[in-house]
Design a protein around this nucleic acid. Structure first.
Lengths: 366, 366
DNA sequence: TTGTAGGCGTTATCAA
DNA sequence: TTGATAACGCCTACAA
């Protein structure tokens, strides 16, 4: 007698499996079997069931399925900020790989804040995602959080930034190598006072890039001058400030650890009336299709963003599937794209070229 | 090395509400009440329950909750491509607004393909998202799809592109107005042969921008020359091709309907040895912080991307909450940012200025 | 081949 | 205030 089907506000509820069973005059089991292409259901019944499904516009409730299967086919992904141009392609890579294997992406932004990061993780865990792709915010987890994550048994894969205290599974770019090559290139093109605009040294890849910078200087017999190293936060504004404080020391080469800070730097450069590559050579991390029209053409170290995301997702899905192999730390190779922001090569270490302009490489990227 | 640390394989299932009940010696009901801050539970019991929760590291299973509540607190968002620099900020806006109201975002890419779009919608519906934010792919839904969506009773809000056949709820930029102003500005700076590189005219905003273009020409008594109108697809490559086919007709002003096509255009421009703004004035849609260092400074029509996303999410959440008011079509105002890609104003309609450089406006955007 | 019944983890409805 | 108990929609042994 508690019948509210006359409730005017009550919009036709979606059909459930039992509705289909009733409509087609079979049991719930049979419907389920049909829906899941299970054990050969009699041709006739299958037909009837399928008709009922169409008629009722039945759509399996994946929430209910998740509950019983203890799998949501959903991956949580936490990035610092999807509006930072670096991450969209990484997310896209992850989404492509996930999609291909029947997973979806629940996206969160941490703004590189530990508090937001923790909230996001808690939420994703409550929503019972099958695994989490994490670009760790700068700084350390609360011990309690780390402990909880350990116990909860949901696989994590780190993206772009390592954090061994959490997991050794990570997909990153070889930042040391990238920075090393970048600085070597600056040295090769005759720069002696080479500066670094670094990311936050608490972040693993910033540290790696710093190490690459330092070792390249050493390899090229160039001095490491602390005055020429500024720590930024990977955002435009910090690159701008770094530029102002740095340029007064007249470096003749600058390696910037990401694109956004390069943008800030170049604003400062302009304000100060300096010219690139005449006054200083520049190598930046991170390349984008739209940089193709920027002048001077920037020599950059490009990271395989899409691949970063897709390989991370694939690894995560393996873990979800129960592959408990040993930890995987995948380092993808960056690519030095030599263009013209380092100007002419005046000193060449291998002696093959001298006073040769940097080669031009066309951006063929889609 | 010692291989096992006493745990052969411990998939320790997460604690459930009944575990907590048992641990604390109360009923499930009481635990639930505590978790949800419900009816005044006795101080003592509450304490005991909370201790048990902590001890067992209990975390409510939102999947189960969703099943019974028929609400997932999840919003599906379908964009053409998160790697297109336009969308990240829109998604960010949506995420911020959703987050604030206790919702999460399930992100899908359609690549502007009807097939992928349909798959994404089906999936989101099966996962029982509470609503969907959709940037409609170019083209029409299958009638069956449209019918299904109507019946399924899940609110949709369109983002950036209208599609009245589906729903009148939409949050878009005022594209007509933006284009109109852009073209008027070109005319004001003395351009007479003004060209258009348009988006796919099947997409509502491309059509609107085209209308704004056409009407502005008429208002300025300039001819509409079909030779000077090329339809692209909003991607770099199409801007490049459009540039090549267009520039041979020597327009002295070009309005490009989005940023990516502008990038393509400028590549073509360079190949042809042309100069902006000397050879032609340029107004582009879509502005980005990193464009601040590009020369010539681009005069653009900026769209409030973040707001687009956040307002769409807020409207959607209202619909989810049962607010069945009349359809809302929200048009957000674009902003003409006058910089230098139109060169000097030679012909000024209001007679106040002549031969004045375009004013410079600093990008203060965060 | 098909059906029955129990359970997944919550919330909601009644009693007590 | 609490506590059983029935949904929620689906999967899956176990039977038939």
């Amino acid at each position: 007698m508690p019948s509210r089907r006359t409730n005017p506000k009550k919009p036709t509820k979606a059909a459930s499996i039992s509705d289909v069973a009733r409509e087609s005059g079979v049991s719930i089991f049979t419907v389920s079997a049909v829906v899941n292409n299970k054990s050969h259901v009699g041709k006739g019944l299958r037909q009837r069931v399928e008709n009922a499904i169409r008629k009722l516009n039945y759509r399996p409730n994946l929430i209910a399925r998740s509950l019983i299967k203890q799998k949501t086919q959903t991956i949580g992904m936490i990035v610092p900020d999807i509006a930072n141009p670096f991450f969209p392609m990484v997310v896209r890579g992850a989404e492509d790989a996930a999609q291909k294997q029947g997973y979806n992406l629940l996206l969160c932004n941490s703004d590189d804040s530990l508090a937001k990061e923790e909230v996001a993780i808690e939420l994703l865990l409550s929503k019972r995602v099958d695994g989490i792709l994490l670009t760790k915010a700068a700084g350390d987890f609360q011990p309690s959080l780390r402990k909880m994550i350990k116990e909860v048994n949901v696989p994590f894969v780190l993206v772009m930034r390592t954090y061994p205290q959490l997991t050794k599974d990570a997909v990153v770019s070889d930042d040391y190598q990238g920075a090393y090559e970048a600085v070597c290139h600056l040295a090769r093109s005759g720069r002696r006072r080479i500066a670094l605009i670094s990311g936050p040294l608490k972040i693993s890849n910033a540290k790696e890039r710093w190490r690459g910078f330092r070792d390249a200087l050493e390899a090229k017999n160039l001095p490491y001058d602390p005055e020429l190293v500024v720590e930024g936060d990977y955002r435009i504004e910090s690159g701008f400030r770094a530029g102002h404080s740095l340029l007064s020391h007249r470096p003749d080469g600058i390696y910037v650890a990401n694109h956004l800070m390069t943008v800030g730097l170049l604003k400062a450069v302009e304000e100060m009336g300096l010219k690139c590559p005449e006054d200083f050579g520049l190598v930046s991390f991170d390349d984008y299709p739209w940089l193709g029209i920027f002048r001077p053409r920037l020599t950059t170290v490009e990271l395989p963003k899409h691949q970063l995301g897709s390989e991370a997702a694939e690894l995560l899905i393996q873990r979800i599937a129960g592959n408990h192999g040993k930890p995987v730390l995948k380092k993808l190779l960056p690519e030095l794209r030599i263009r013209e922001s380092c100007g002419f090569a005046q000193f060449v270490s291998n002696g093959q070229h001298a006073n040769v302009p940097e080669s031009e490489q066309v951006l063929t990227h889609k």
